[in-house]
């Protein structure tokens, strides 16, 4: 029996030396330390031996078991060390993915509106918000767009199915953020500087470049002695901060009923640098916003004397900016809630 245990020891030690993988090591463990191993058989058979022999054999067999277990542990560590070496010698595989800790992301419109708001806030404009369902008085009449004015045709309107208000006003979804010009003037006396971000609505069929709901940001500054030079300077400074100092800016005459003189601001096309390309329709310029000196009739509608005060206003469509900035070819994506799109921002 003594001999048998020694043989078992020699055999196990010899075969252990040839082992190079954890799979092999596992087979070795089963063979020499498993339930069906010879060693286990010896240990199980102890009960049948005479008492004296039992003690001696038992001691040797248990001794061997401890030795083999120690060898097994040693070999395991050796194999693990080899495995670590092959992965660069560190203790963990740093290339394995970490445990997920997900952050969501803000919608690209939220990001752009925030960025725009911050720029104007830093120039002393207060950010205010207003109702999205409006009276036609604020959306049109008070802004010098009377009934049957052709300028209304360019702002196709969603009318709300509700009885007229007490003044006979009709309810609609605001077609621009400009109604807040009047609401702010009614509440607050000059000097005032505000910007109004928000949703606006146009009765338009949906396609890759048109959606019935989008965002605008409106600006208004009223004080004594505000000039068109101030308008240009403010909007130029905005463009420098938002689009960068290397983009030229162009101001041309345009018509909006609630301003006079009317202004359109364009920045140099970022793709062709003014040379003309497909993006800018070969003009070299991207139209960014409409602006102008507040029309005297609008000041009057807001209860402000146009002979004493003057001001400027501007308004821009916001979706256009990320469209241009990221080369997005379908405006509907903003409202698709598609994570494959939204996770890119």
């Amino acid at each position: 029996m003594n001999q048998q245990i020694d043989d078992l020891r020699n055999q196990a030690v010899a075969s252990l030396k040839t082992i190079a993988s954890s799979d092999e090591l596992n087979s070795w463990r089963v063979r020499y330390l498993g339930k069906k191993s010879s060693l286990m058989a010896v240990l199980k058979g102890l009960g049948e031996l005479p008492a004296e022999e039992r003690r001696a054999v038992g001691g040797q067999a248990n001794q061997l078991k401890k030795e083999l277990e120690a060898l097994l542990k040693e070999k395991e560590e050796a194999l693990a060390a080899v495995s670590n070496l092959s992965t660069g010698g560190t203790d963990v595989d740093i290339t394995l993915p970490g445990r997920p800790a997900n952050l969501g992301k803000l919608h690209p419109m939220t990001l752009v509106l925030h960025e725009l708001g911050e720029i104007f806030a830093s120039m002393g404009f207060e950010i205010v918000e207003g109702p999205e369902v409006e009276w036609d008085y604020y959306n049109f009449e008070a802004l010098n767009i009377p009934k049957e004015h052709p300028a209304r045709d360019s702002m196709q309107t969603f009318w709300v199915d509700a009885p007229p208000g007490e003044n006979g006003w009709e309810m609609l979804l605001r077609t621009h953020t400009s109604p807040m010009q009047i609401r702010v003037m009614e509440k607050q006396k000059p000097p005032l500087r505000i910007v109004v971000p928000g949703r606006v609505f146009r009765y338009e069929a949906t396609d890759a470049t048109h959606i019935p709901m989008f965002h605008q940001i409106e600006g208004l500054a009223i004080d004594k002695g505000i000039t068109m030079a101030d308008l240009k300077g403010t909007l130029y400074e905005f463009s420098r901060r938002f689009f960068g100092t290397d983009r030229r800016v162009r101001f041309r005459c345009d018509f909006f009923p609630f301003v006079e003189p009317g202004v359109e601001m364009a920045v140099e096309c970022g793709v062709c640098k003014g040379e003309g390309c497909r993006l800018c329709g070969q003009s070299g310029w991207i139209e960014i916003l409409g602006a102008g000196m507040v029309h005297p009739r609008v000041l009057e509608a807001g209860g402000i004397d146009p002979d004493v005060y003057s001001g400027f206003a501007f308004g821009m469509g916001v979706e256009r900016i990320p469209l241009l900035r990221y080369g997005i070819d379908d405006i509907r994506l903003f409202y698709s809630s598609d994570l494959r799109f939204l996770r890119q921002f």
């Binding site: 004080d223 101030d230 240009k232 403010t234 101001f251 003189p261």
Partner: peptide, 23 residues
């Protein structure tokens, strides 16, 4: 006023920052 600005050219109008104190 707009007629004058159009004939002179909007580019001819200087650029200034709002000078008064912030409301």
């Amino acid at each position: 006023v707009e007629e004058i600005a159009r004939i002179k050219g909007y580019g001819d109008i200087p650029m200034t920052m709002l000078a008064k104190s912030i409301p």
